[in-house]
């Protein structure tokens, strides 16, 4: 299975990627995807995740063709 992973705003610099595709055989959660693309870093709780333009949790399971996007927290004002 192939899924597309996108990083938004300052996460691009932090992760060093804008967009990447990953291949896998088992079912994967959002959390596992993050670990796979960041060399096993822990996914911080305040990073938002959207699967196919809908906000999802770290436990959401993704399927073939899904787009997973990660967003950094923004609290300033």
């Amino acid at each position: 299975m192939t899924i597309t992973v996108k990083f938004f705003a300052s996460l691009r610099e932090q992760v060093g990627k804008t967009e990447t595709q990953i291949e896998f055989s088992d079912s994967l959660t959002v959390n596992k995807i993050w670990q796979q693309v960041t060399a096993n870093k822990v996914l911080p709780k305040h990073i938002l995740v959207a699967v196919n333009q809908e906000y999802a949790s770290q436990d959401t399971t993704v399927k073939e063709g899904d787009e997973v996007a990660f967003f950094p927290p923004v609290t300033g004002g």
């Binding site: 705003a9 691009r12 959207a50 809908e54 906000y55």
Partner: peptide, 20 residues
């Protein structure tokens, strides 16, 4: 919905948000 704007890369992103 949550609208996000990445000004540096000029990207707008909107995704839907449901009650948890």
């Amino acid at each position: 919905k949550l609208l996000r704007f990445d000004a540096y890369n000029n990207k707008w992103h909107q995704a839907s948000l449901k009650q948890d």
